[in-house]
Amino acid sequence: MENNQEKSQEEMVKEAVEEAKKAAEASGAPSEDEKAADEVASEDAENTEDTEEGQKEMEDSKESGKKLFGKKNKKDKKDEKIEELTDRLTRQMAEFDNFRKRTEKEKSHMYEVGAKDIIDKILPVVDNFERGLGAVGEEEKENPFVQGMEMVYKQLMTTLEEVGVKPIEAVGKEFDPEFHNAVMHVEDENFGENIVTEEFQKGYAYRDSIVRHSMVKVAN
């Protein structure tokens, strides 16, 4: 009798549970399994949203980094103007230095040309001194006038030498067309080939340039 009562109670409980399930299904309320599935789906959605937000933040960070490091800083207008003026000043200084050097070279060349022209005009005076003193006999060398002329001649030659004028060596030297002007040729066994034997007019050089070539006689 007791067993029948217990069974009937168990059956009643089962029936009540079944009826509750049916009622819940009919009313649309989710079951335990459905709740668990919904919770899992909700967590997946939240994780997906977090992932998408993280990716978006990373992309924004990369983009800002590109803008920060990839983009060149634009120069200020004042800095550009300073650079322009500095470059212009440097160019003008270089041009001025070149102009100064060129002017100095031209002045030096003009001075040398002018000096050679003056020296060339003085040389005939030197020639006349030498001819006159060369014509003085031995008995007249003690004459005060002759001695005075010799002193003037020596002073003139010393002054020319101080400014860079020197006579060109000729007699006994090998003929060199750069220094000598051959106006006569002679065959002489006493001299070697192409040797200057006599000087008709003395040549002079000013510094490194020739003012007047020596007029000479060349042997062999």
Rank of each mutant, 00 (worst) to 15 (best):
K35V: 11
I82V: 13
K56R: 12
A115S: 05
D76Q: 02
A36N: 04
S8M: 05
A45F: 05
E10Q: 05
K66Q: 11
K72I: 01
D50E: 10
A115R: 03
D97A: 07
K78R: 06
H109W: 02
E6K: 10
K66A: 15
M58D: 15
S27G: 11
E63K: 15
D127F: 00
R102L: 05
D120M: 08
P124G: 02
M110G: 10
E63P: 04
K101L: 10
S42M: 11
P30K: 11
Y111N: 15
E83A: 08
D44M: 14
A20T: 10
V40F: 09
A16K: 09
V125T: 09
A26D: 06
S64C: 06
R131G: 04
A94C: 03
G132V: 14
L68H: 14
S61I: 15
P124S: 02
D50C: 12
I118S: 04
K101W: 02
K121Q: 15
K56I: 09
S42I: 11
G132S: 12
D120Q: 13
R100L: 11
V17P: 03
E83V: 05
K21W: 06
L89R: 10
M93D: 13
E84A: 12
E53P: 06
K105E: 04
T86W: 03
E95R: 08
E11K: 08
A23H: 05
M110Q: 10
D76E: 05
D97E: 07
T103A: 13
D50L: 15
N73Y: 13
K77Q: 10
T86F: 00
K21I: 06
V125P: 00
E80Q: 06
T90P: 00
E53S: 14
N47D: 03
A26E: 09
D79S: 06
T86G: 09
K71Q: 14
E106W: 01
F96A: 14
I122Y: 06
K101P: 01
L85Y: 03
R131F: 06
K77A: 11
G54I: 13
D76A: 04
I82K: 12
E19A: 15
D79T: 08
K56T: 15
L68G: 06
E11A: 09
V17F: 07
R102E: 14
E15N: 14
F99Q: 14
G65L: 10
E19C: 09
E106G: 11
G28F: 04
S108L: 08
K35W: 05
I122D: 02
K105M: 13
